[in-house]
Design a binder for these strands. Structure first.
Lengths: 108, 108
DNA sequence: AATAAATATCGTAATATTGCAATATTAAAT
DNA sequence: ATTTAATATTGCAATATTACGATATTTATT
């Protein structure tokens, strides 16, 4: 026990859960907000911005990238991260659908 | 170490992370989809619907409720759960804002 | 009052996540 | 070729999550 029973759920359910999970940590939300703010895609600055050590930030970036929420482009010495809006679209559409379906449903 | 440094982040960042985290498990996504499908707010049926034991489902429901994603009303013997669309609105608005801001931003 | 039905809570094992120091990798600059 | 910089990876301790059997709680039914 202890491990999530991924195989019992649909691909869609796992997809949404994976993306949501990646946003389920305030540091990663903060990274997204920072990337949104700086317009240009900077990288090492995130370490200066957050109260976390470099390896920790690197790990959070990796998770955001795995979930498809950000993109990382190698630019010479450094790596440039930026938001991948397509994945945010997936979430927005999913929630819009839920809200559309549930509105006008009577609850208990 | 090991504990999330919640106190270093803004209330807003923690709020979004908490809601997203609650959706970060396929079983909880499945519960939301089931509640959406059945229109009427049923409860014990969720246990029959999912491949998880009753205490596990109960625990997931608790987390969804704590995050504000569902509501639970006592109805005699049983408890009736249903989607709380207000919290989904929070997420949708948040993501819409991100998408609006990022669109037309050039990436690296 | 006793029983049954529905759900929550407790306790615990298995697993996953978080955070960081130390170290490795990679590419630019000297 | 060395040094410097930027970032990733490794290893590990602390903590959190997941899942469930056993048990408690709560309300309806008999």
């Amino acid at each position: 026990m202890g491990a999530t029973k991924t195989e019992h759920f649909t691909d869609r359910q796992n997809q949404i859960a994976t993306i949501a999970k990646a946003l389920g940590h305030p540091a990663r939300v903060a990274i997204i907000e920072y990337l949104m703010k700086v317009n240009e895609c900077i990288c090492g600055d995130i370490v200066n911005e957050l109260p976390l050590a470099q390896p920790t930030v690197s790990q959070h970036l990796k998770e955001l990238k795995n979930a498809g929420l950000i993109k990382g482009n190698i630019e010479g010495n450094s790596i440039c991260y930026c938001i991948n809006e397509k994945t945010f679209d997936v979430l927005k559409d999913y929630f819009s659908k839920i809200i559309f379906t549930v509105t006008n449903q009577k609850c208990c």
